[in-house]
Design a protein around this nucleic acid. Structure first.
Lengths: 133, 133
DNA sequence: GTCTGTGCAAATTGTTTGCACGCAA
DNA sequence: TTGCGTGCAAACAATTTGCACAGAC
């Protein structure tokens, strides 16, 4: 019944890298970054550990951008803005009404809300000047 | 400059099928359903036309469930509930605060909001009794 | 006749997995 | 020594794409 997980240096490194950034990296971005310090690291290990960390609640997969999943170690309730031009993912405040709405789902629909994700897509402040369409 | 698109019977059928359901089907679900009436239909055509319809604003890809994208012809602002057990996707009301928040992104962050998606995951009323974990 | 739409199958791509070995406990 | 963790490469699965032909205009 106990947690049989061992301390793995690589899992630790993946979590630390994820905690240290606000970029909401993809598995591949993490892989490339960590490859410098852990030359023998493999992409499969990154995916496997992101899965483990997600199960443990230490990380979440935030949304998909350009076909790739983005990960975040910040599990507090917040919303995300995704720029369709530079593809950055940025944190935003989550309107209180959304959190309240989750609590009311039970009463209103009989649903149990376990996870809530608000994602807004558009153009960020840097890209709005560059791009028109 | 004109719309050079021809009326394609299959594209029409795909859009109609999408309009007629609240199931937020996957490309494959649409394919299987339409295959009855259009035996020569191919899955690639469904994907291609979903892309075209999305570009024209007649359909949207709503969210990913179990690795597959779900599509919707209802492009009015609303939220979605995804049951992790039966994997149904259901419409919900979008809190007014969320729509307001989109309008304020410009002032607050300098972002231009183009699309807003609120997705809540959990257990639906049918599944909550069946499943515990 | 021209040009868009389609079937088909191959290609692409993000992610997962099997296996043998490595390493933490 | 036990059994989780990892590298590697193959497997997978959803989606995309090239090409030749079909059908709408």
């Amino acid at each position: 019944m106990e947690n049989k997980r061992k301390n793995s240096r690589k899992r630790q490194a993946i979590l630390e890298a994820l905690c240290a950034t606000k970029e909401h990296p993809t598995a591949e971005m993490l892989y490339k970054q960590l490859k410098a310090d852990y030359p023998e690291l493999s992409l499969g290990t990154v995916y496997r550990n992101l899965g483990v960390l997600a199960q443990e609640g230490l990380a979440v997969s935030v949304c998909r951008v350009a076909g790739q999943e983005r990960y975040d170690a910040d599990t507090s309730p917040h919303a995300h803005f995704v720029c369709r031009c530079c593809r950055r993912v940025m944190d935003m405040e989550l309107p209180k009404a959304v959190q309240e709405c989750c609590g009311e789902l039970d009463r209103e629909y009989g649903f149990i809300a376990e996870d809530c994700s608000l994602t807004i897509r558009g153009l960020c402040s840097s890209c709005r000047g560059i791009q028109a369409s």
